[in-house]
């Protein structure tokens, strides 16, 4: 069965591997060009020290990174690549067998449906795992060498860069694959399964990013700095700002329950949803900002990875159930 799965998919596995390898080679070339350029800047900067002693050379590197448009193209490709696994390897995995009716051949050999499904899924799923982990390794190495500061994707804790850094991208790939396989089994048509995979994958990723990821770690609270004429928030640029928040001033005698805070926020509300900081302060409530500091990066990464892997396990179970339930 392992041989059969490999034989049936070797061409498309080779294409997937070729895409990943070609992309990795391109990343390495870009990294090499960047390092060469940075070294050249360093040399000329050091040589010209005498003329502009106040400009540190590192500022020049950053401006060079800003101009590095290829970095964003690479990030966009990294963002989309998981879908390739869902479309090329996931969707046809079962749908193709039903379209060509070869499932009838498979189900009348001396091998149980469960074994057929599990081996098929695992052989291709493991290939996706190896390719996507290798890709994640290379991209993390790349981001260490080519600075992220100038990228429009932001810092690694922020949505965008977060999605192409760490281990989560490998989980996205596995999720896309498992989603494609499950939809292929449910719809039994490759084209429909591909369409469904693209739509659902994008929808799940967006929903998770905007609603669920921020809940994977308790956000940090930073009180607003209040001036006579208003207030300002002070959050590091490398944090992920997740919204406005309130808390009872630490050490005060006021009740710390959420009910109390909500009550005071309502009490102090002016039109247009703006609160008077004076009114809040009088009742011991502080206005501030909630954010995920960069130190939460790995907590969020593992939380996100775990959630997607749980979804992969559920999709695997659904696919197996559907295979066993199928009847000609």
């Amino acid at each position: 069965m392992i041989w059969l799965t490999w034989r049936q998919h070797r061409a498309v596995l080779a294409v997937s591997a070729a895409v990943v390898v070609a992309f990795v080679v391109w990343m390495m070339i870009v990294e090499h060009d960047y390092s060469t350029a940075v070294r050249a800047i360093a040399r000329s900067c050091n040589a010209s020290r005498a003329y502009s002693p106040n400009t540190p050379c590192s500022a020049l590197y950053s401006s060079e990174a800003l101009a590095w448009g290829q970095g964003d193209i690479i990030r966009w490709i990294l963002l989309v690549l998981p879908l390739m696994f869902g479309v090329l390897l996931g969707a046809p995995l079962f749908a193709g067998e039903f379209e060509r009716q070869t499932v009838i051949l498979a189900f009348t050999q001396n091998i149980s449906r469960t074994r057929w499904m599990v081996i098929r899924w695992l052989v291709i799923g493991l290939s996706v795992f190896v390719l996507s982990v290798a890709l994640a390794g290379v991209s993390n190495w790349w981001f260490l060498h080519v600075p992220t500061n100038g990228s429009s994707f932001g810092y690694r804790i922020q949505p965008g860069q977060f999605d192409v850094t760490g281990i989560a991208p490998a989980a996205y790939s596995l999720f896309a694959f498992a989603l494609g396989a499950a939809l292929g089994m449910a719809l039994r048509r490759t084209a429909r399964a591909i369409f469904g995979t693209v739509v659902l994958f994008v929808a799940v990723r967006i929903l998770f990013e905007h609603y669920f990821r921020r809940q994977l770690a308790a956000p940090t609270f930073s009180p607003a700095t209040v001036f006579a004429s208003g207030y300002s928030f002070d959050v590091s640029a490398s944090s992920w700002n997740v919204g406005r928040g309130y808390r009872v001033r630490p050490g005060s005698a006021y009740p710390t329950s959420q009910t109390y805070i909500n009550h005071i926020v309502n009490l102090c509300s002016k039109p247009f949803g703006v609160q008077s900081t004076g009114c809040l302060s009088k009742h011991g409530v502080q206005l501030g900002v909630l954010f995920q500091p960069s130190s939460h990066f790995w907590t969020l990464q593992w939380g996100e990875t775990g959630s997607y892997i749980a979804a992969v396990a559920a999709l695997f179970g659904l696919t197996l159930w559907s295979v066993r339930r199928w009847r000609a």
Partner: peptide
Amino acid sequence: TDHLGRVGYLDQFHPLY
């Protein structure tokens, strides 16, 4: 799985890879 080893089935469309 009991019947799988003892039964040979030829479909009318004889699907093959």
